[in-house]
Design a protein around this nucleic acid. Sequence first.
DNA 1: AATTCTTTGACTAATATTGACTATTATTAT
DNA 2: ATAATAATAGTCAATATTAGTCAAAGAATT
Lengths: 155, 155
Amino acid sequence: MADENISDLIERYLKEILAQNEQVKIRRSEIAGLFDVVPSQINYVINTRFTIQNGYIVESKRGGGGYIRIEKVHLLDDIDVLNSLIAAIGNKLSKRDSETIVQTLYNNELINRREVSIILAAIDKDAIDLNSSDLTDIMRANIMVSILNRLRYER
Amino acid sequence: MADENISDLIERYLKEILAQNEQVKIRRSEIAGLFDVVPSQINYVINTRFTIQNGYIVESKRGGGGYIRIEKVHLLDDIDVLNSLIAAIGNKLSKRDSETIVQTLYNNELINRREVSIILAAIDKDAIDLNSSDLTDIMRANIMVSILNRLRYER
DNA sequence: AATTCTTTGACTAATATTGACTATTATTAT
DNA sequence: ATAATAATAGTCAATATTAGTCAAAGAATT
């Protein structure tokens, strides 16, 4: 929907193939040529959009006949998904990664659309960002307001 | 009616598009150029006139092909309940009061049981309490883990 | 006069793009 | 076989391209 930059176009191109093929095998320079970008931009696209958190496994090989293969993984059961996600989080989590995780939960049908946005509201920057102290109660207020605001509308 | 300042004009411009389009996607500098203002004034207009209270959701992306997207959402009938709850919260909220609010939301059928526990997980003390710094990302991690843990079981 | 709202711009943050350099694997020459 | 070369992909840092924040100055309102 918001494909204004080339990386998004490349992402969409690959995902369209993956929508029908379970896996896609490319020659890096070919795709780079197709979209008229430097080859390393393909790595950028893969590193930012085809991570394991997003549900993709990437394999590659260099040298003659080299390739990059992207495979959409089918996560076994819900607990495994949750365990691996929790393990991957550690003790810091960027906004971007958090959104990726929520998307994965949705893709694996662990949460529905409405729950997606409740969770996003909970971890919204405006909700949890604060510079003053007296932390816990203030944070709770911020998070609660964020959630309430979310509940105002549909979708 | 007689919009005297530029911010009002920009507001009207965007709302005219939204009257027909459900969402509008802009390049900040473009709109700024169109009205001959500094780009950050677009943020001012958005922050003062396209808030969630007014029924708008705003998303943006930086970098090449960046954009700001404003979406008009359908506000629900129970807006008054939510408004008064939000007003009552202020900037601090005890655990007890937060639970009362969640109970109220449930009693008014604004959320279901599952959503109750997702929200309670989000504002759980263990999720949001921390003494170290580097706050936002750490908090987000805590909240996310708390939510994921809650998703492990039913009800 | 005081307060609130608007305008401005310097600085910051996030994301995308590029290219020089490196690493790995395959192929060819000796 | 081994070494040299070719053909790939990977890494990383510099640069480019956007949007966001914040506080100061100016304008309008009370």
